[in-house]
Design a protein around this nucleic acid. Structure first.
Length: 151
DNA sequence: TATATATTGTTGT
DNA sequence: ACAACAATATATA
């Protein structure tokens, strides 16, 4: 069973795909593509919670990708909220190149829950969603998590 | 400060 | 086999 739904966040719509009760896709959308769906309410609640407290309950999602991509995504999940790491640092840990990390970030199928926005370039923000057109969202998310994290 | 160029590993064609 | 890419180190002025 496939469920599609759209969530309205403070900074834009999010399209959600749930396959067999498991979150498989979460991306920004320009408009309200789908109506809300009862079977997606637990994801909507998780997002409500994130936009209020910046806490992500990283429970049930199953990203589909290559071995390498899943390895990078698993590592990204361990980046604490309120902090960032550079493409180069991740590359060093995983014995690969900064650009390869960028490729894996770009193919992240579950935004927010796999926090690719916490991966930045060494001297600037880096990219977000295949380019530099959506950096305002990356910046907003980092600010949001920063201001909701005790130091 | 800024531009240029080489090097880099994974992915898509 | 090859070009693209959400990067980075180094060199030059």
């Amino acid at each position: 069973m496939i469920i599609n739904t759209t969530y309205r966040s403070p900074i834009g719509y999010l399209n959600i795909t749930i396959l067999e009760q498991v979150l498989t896709n979460l991306n920004w959308s320009a408009e309200q593509t789908f109506t809300s769906h009862d079977h997606a309410s637990h994801i909507h609640h998780a997002l409500d919670n994130y936009f209020h407290t910046a806490d992500l309950n990283q429970d049930i999602f199953k990203p589909q990708g290559s071995t390498f991509q899943r390895k990078v995504w698993q590592r990204m999940i361990t980046i604490p909220k309120g902090s960032t790491i550079s493409y180069g640092q991740l590359a060093k840990e995983l014995n690969t190149s900064a650009r390869a990390i960028g490729q894996a970030c770009k193919s992240n199928p579950i935004l927010l829950f796999i926090p690719c926005h916490r991966v930045v370039a060494k001297t600037h923000l880096g990219g977000y969603i295949s380019g530099t057109d959506h950096l305002d969202k990356k910046e907003w998310l980092l600010d949001h998590e920063q201001s909701n994290t005790e130091i």
